[in-house]
Design a protein around this nucleic acid. Structure first.
Length: 332
DNA sequence: ATAATTTGACCGTT
DNA sequence: AACGGTCAAATTAT
């Protein structure tokens, strides 16, 4: 409710311009049942009420969870289940996408209302369930889940102490409400975008995450851009300088500059890119590929928006969004 | 007063 | 029966 003003104004113009550039985009349905969805987050927040109705009927539900959690907190994190895109069950086919973030954006153009929270299996943090605020009014089916992942090791940043926390955000179903069209989502100027070209599997994706972190970490503290390659297809890492606070979403000069070149079809971006890049040429190449695409469609915006236009389905599908990574944050 | 959260109970699936 | 997602009363924020 409060984070709407910060980026309007100037961005509005850009957004308007982009609307022209953005392709009609048919909703491409991907194999394996997953498609690009929407993404965003609101900072969950502070404290509010609770309740305590009294039936002792099923207290065991959560009690046992606690016990189990005490017993083994380790192996659960390392070994998990497999969520393969297995069966094409005739279940309700709803689009789903998962994203990993280190910080949770406060505003993405949509409003979410929390409707539940749960302690999950071997997770050390609870999972929160949100649904679009327009679910009642407009019957919007969009939902989202946010869960903080286990902090392994938990190294802190040098100076100010940022926790190496990262979250898994899952978006289910696309918005059917009228929110985006009218109120454009803010443009993400500082974000690290990575792509993993395989199934999204917590355990399997772990090494990818490490690479991502490594890549982003190399430039995070400077607010520049960098890329990296790994077993999977990491497209690019675009770092930022600070936290999730909207007020800290200051535009990065380099980004601005860089983006201008991109939008202008300048072609100079390669050099700029190399200049900012700290890693391999190969990685840079793939990154350029993305940027070229960006040049055609515009800067990366809120994942929600992206999903709405499905112009980057493949890239975002099972991809990673890592923002505001601190350099020495993570070691793997 | 209305809107948004919290949180244990419910409940449908594995 | 264990899990995970959702409901909804209770409670807090605006």
């Amino acid at each position: 409710m409060e984070a709407a003003d910060w980026m309007l104004g100037r961005e509005e113009q850009l957004v308007a311009e982009l609307c022209h550039l953005l392709p009609p985009s048919p909703t491409t349905t991907r194999s394996c049942g997953s498609t690009a969805p929407g993404l965003s987050l609101t900072t969950a927040a502070s404290g509010r009420g609770g309740r305590q109705r009294g039936s002792r009927k099923r207290v065991r539900d959560n009690v046992k969870l606690l016990q189990a959690a005490d017993d083994d907190l380790h192996d659960a994190a390392t070994n998990a289940k497999h969520l393969r895109c297995s069966k094409t069950s005739r279940k309700r086919q709803q689009t789903t996408s998962t994203v990993w973030v280190t910080t949770v954006p406060d505003f993405d153009g949509y409003q979410w209302r929390k409707y539940g929270q749960k302690q999950i299996e071997g997770a050390q943090y609870t999972r929160s369930y949100y649904r679009c605020t327009n679910s009642t009014d407009q019957g919007c089916l969009a939902k989202r889940t946010v869960q903080r992942n286990d902090d392994d090791g938990g190294a802190d940043v040098e100076g100010g102490g940022g926790s190496a926390a990262w979250y898994t955000v899952t978006y289910i179903s696309e918005h059917t409400c009228k929110s985006i069209e009218s109120a454009a989502a803010p443009v993400i100027l500082e974000t690290t975008t990575v792509r993993a070209n395989h199934e999204l599997q917590p355990p399997a994706a772990e090494h990818d995450h490490a690479a991502v972190v490594a890549a982003a970490g190399s430039c995070a503290s400077t607010g520049s851009m960098a890329t990296s390659s790994s077993s999977s297809d990491i497209i690019t890492a675009w770092s930022s300088t600070s936290g999730a606070d909207p007020s800290s979403y200051h535009r990065n000069e380099q980004h601005d500059d860089f983006r201008q070149h991109l939008l202008a079809g300048d072609g100079d971006y390669w050099d700029m890119y190399r200049q900012y890049s700290h890693t391999t040429t190969q990685a840079a190449i793939s990154a350029v590929g993305l940027f070229e695409e960006m040049a055609l469609t515009g800067p990366i915006r809120s994942p929600v928006h992206i999903a709405a236009n499905s112009w980057m389905d493949d890239l975002l599908l099972n991809g990673l969004f890592v923002s505001s990574l601190a350099a020495s944050d993570i070691q793997m």
